[in-house]
Amino acid sequence: MIPFVDLKAQYVGIKDEVNAAIQGVLESCQFTLGSEVAAFEEEFSAYCQGQYGIGVNTGTSALHLALLAAGIGPGDEVITVPFTFVATVAAIHYTGAKPVFVDIDPRTFTMDVKAIESAITSRTKAIVPVHLYGHPADMDPILDIARQHGLTVIEDACQAHGSEYKGRRVGSLGDMGCFSFYPGKNLGAYGEGGMVVTNNAEYTRTIRMLRDWGAEQKYQHVLKGYNFRLEGIQGAVLRVKLRHLNAWTEARREIASYYNELLSGSGVPTPEAMSYARHVYHIYAIRTRKRSEWQQALQAKGIQTGIHYPIPVHLLPAYADLGYVKGDFPHAEQAAEEVLSLPMFAELSRAECQEVCEAVTTLAEQAAVEYAA
């Protein structure tokens, strides 16, 4: 079986470092926040080329608190995309604001910058571009539009640790950048975790209070806050893993390049990286009109795959109250019907890549014969 992701293989390579780091937290008894979290905040924000990092319990919480720090609330509108994990939209909903969608660029699966202006109203307060699958959104036009209209830009970088836009790390391009450390991410905790990265000291102060019951000092509650603190063990584990992130990223990029090479003559649409982008391939998604059949056939051959994501958010029952209907965002809807994620993790071997691509190419050849008939 070729797994979609293999966390055990990663752990084996860093086992001694991780075990020592966890043991250190057990001995210090700093289980919530503490010195390991503080050190990780400094190290990861520096990695992102940002000044401040605020560790929280999930990427969803990072988005939620970033929006609150920006003053987003009931009656406001926030522009984002419908082709994303539901947490992007849920975080906007948590503030009481209304999510407003624009379609995606079908080449990158990220925000179509040409669609933003027409979505802006007098209620618009922020834009949340999503760096989906590890490919950065086209940030310069987004930032230009935001500046013209006085809007806050909050990057959803939950799938894009180390991704770059024109040589600059995502997460420090907008007013705030939000990351998830869910175990399967390129930089994953051994549990849940998230972070907001920013260069703004006031946002930092507000988010630090919001994550810890709205207090800077114990029992001195300045804001109506939350229990969104990052655990000490997760901070320690993430510090260890951050030291390996560059090597793991280059391995992912090499695997993606090899996939591209092996699939180049198959006719299968493969991920496209724009000239401005350093893609970090959290997901390697091909496209096929026969996704269900291909997924079943690959599973039968011992190859696990994933679908990210099968239903765009505007068509989910939970968000039917937003009033969107099928056909409103055709590129997002088509992507949701066609994307199929192939195995992608740093330890994936060339032989495994060849096996995956041989199986995909065979399916593509069979499909071509069927279409021709």
Rank of each mutant, 00 (worst) to 15 (best):
I286D: 03
P106H: 13
Y219Q: 08
L348H: 02
Y258D: 13
C353W: 02
V130K: 04
G184R: 07
V313Q: 04
T84E: 02
A247I: 14
Q304A: 14
D140N: 07
A236S: 04
G96C: 14
M139W: 03
V25A: 08
V240M: 05
H64F: 14
D103S: 11
A256H: 10
Q354V: 15
Y284K: 05
I207A: 05
A336W: 12
L242I: 04
V81W: 01
W213R: 14
E164F: 05
V237D: 00
A9V: 07
D321M: 11
E293D: 13
I2M: 02
T95I: 05
G34Q: 05
F85I: 06
A346R: 04
Y11G: 00
Y281T: 08
K218A: 12
E192H: 07
Y226G: 01
T58F: 02
E272A: 09
L340K: 10
L230H: 11
Q334P: 08
G96P: 14
T361L: 03
D138G: 00
F109A: 11
L151N: 08
V360I: 14
Y258Q: 13
L33S: 14
P3R: 12
E202H: 11
E272S: 11
F85L: 07
P141C: 12
L348K: 06
A215W: 05
R291T: 14
Y133E: 11
G323Q: 02
G167T: 04
D16Y: 01
L340A: 12
G327S: 07
R229Q: 15
A38Q: 14
G265C: 08
N200M: 03
Y281R: 01
T60C: 09
Q30G: 01
I207V: 14
L187H: 06
A251V: 06
I54L: 13
E358S: 12
T108A: 04
V356A: 07
V78K: 03
T206V: 15
L245F: 06
F345H: 13
V81A: 02
V37W: 09
A189V: 00
E352T: 06
P141N: 09
E355K: 15
T124K: 06
Y182Q: 12
V196N: 07
C178E: 03
A359K: 08
I116F: 07
C357T: 08
R169H: 12
T305K: 02
G150E: 03
A332R: 01
F44G: 02
R253A: 04
P343Q: 01
Q234D: 10
I22H: 01
K114V: 06
T362N: 13
E42W: 02
E250Y: 05
G96D: 13
H64V: 03
M344K: 03
Q30H: 10
E192L: 10
T108Y: 02
